[in-house]
Design a protein around this nucleic acid. Structure first.
Ligand SMILES: [Mn+2]
Ligand SMILES: [Mn+2]
Ligand SMILES: [Zn+2]
Ligand SMILES: [Zn+2]
Lengths: 131, 131
DNA sequence: TATAATAACGATAATCATTACTGAATGATT
DNA sequence: AATCATTCAGTAATGATTATCGTTATTATA
């Protein structure tokens, strides 16, 4: 009954707490500063396993590398088209709204919605005044 | 003042009407039956140009090749996790709901939503009884 | 119409993200 | 210690997409 923790996986967890929604490459670069022999393949393998096990979320953005999120709570993401930062929706995103959406989608498509992937884009509060 | 369209681009348009939300490779395979010398690069270039010009939509799905949609109306997509088919939401998806969502996202993230990408997944009506 | 300029093509090479493979290292079990 | 399983680092392979480039249409012009 041994819990398996490789030192490398622990470093990956640390990186996920330090870096905000990082890509695998960003996790790799971060770890490399302290542990140069880490392999990008190890990062990908661990992130993939963790995502498959539900320990982290894998976020897919159009035309961009996947990002990873250690916040596994049900939340959405909004990306700033100017600075590229990614923001979490907090719990305040009314679950009722989402359920209404699901119902509308099911009525329209016949699909019984099990999961949804949604990404919002726009100008963040910092970038908005500038542009 | 000539509107230029190559025969190949016209074939691509045809393919988009025949095939439901096809990938570039599917468009290529379709055209190839009648015009074997078409190049996959030509398909990608034309689809990319058409998408950039707003003539078609490019849909990005996690871990899968992009798909193209000649229906440029504002609509969402729902994929069946069993048969892989992709369904359109018709206009009945209440725009009011979406605006409420945008507002909730802005309140939560500070992002003034300009666009959203959303994909729903679940079992379609055909596949549901079977599984 | 002949010809020069442009635009698009087909073939293929290159890129980028990601996964798969391999032999070595590490850790657990008996 | 001998064995068995897991994970590693390194690297090769894959798959989707884009870039390059010489050739072939297509449009404009003399
Ligand atoms: Mn998040
Ligand atoms: Mn559609
Ligand atoms: Zn910003
Ligand atoms: Zn189905």
């Amino acid at each position: 009954m041994t819990k398996r923790f490789s030192a490398q996986r622990e470093m990956i967890r640390d990186a996920l707490t330090m870096l905000d929604h990082p890509t695998a490459a960003q996790v790799y670069d971060h770890i490399r500063r302290a542990y140069p022999q880490i392999s990008l393949g190890t990062v990908y393998r661990n992130l993939g396993d963790m995502a498959a096990g539900g320990e982290v979320l894998r976020l897919s953005f159009a035309g961009a590398p996947d990002r990873f999120d250690m916040n596994t709570a049900d939340h959405c993401h909004a990306a700033c088209v100017w600075c590229g930062r990614i923001f979490d929706t907090d719990g305040s995103l009314p679950a009722a709204l989402l359920r209404e959406l699901d119902a509308a989608v099911e009525k329209s498509t016949g699909i019984a919605v099990q999961s949804r992937a949604m990404l919002f884009s726009g100008a963040c509060a910092d970038c908005r005044p500038v542009h």
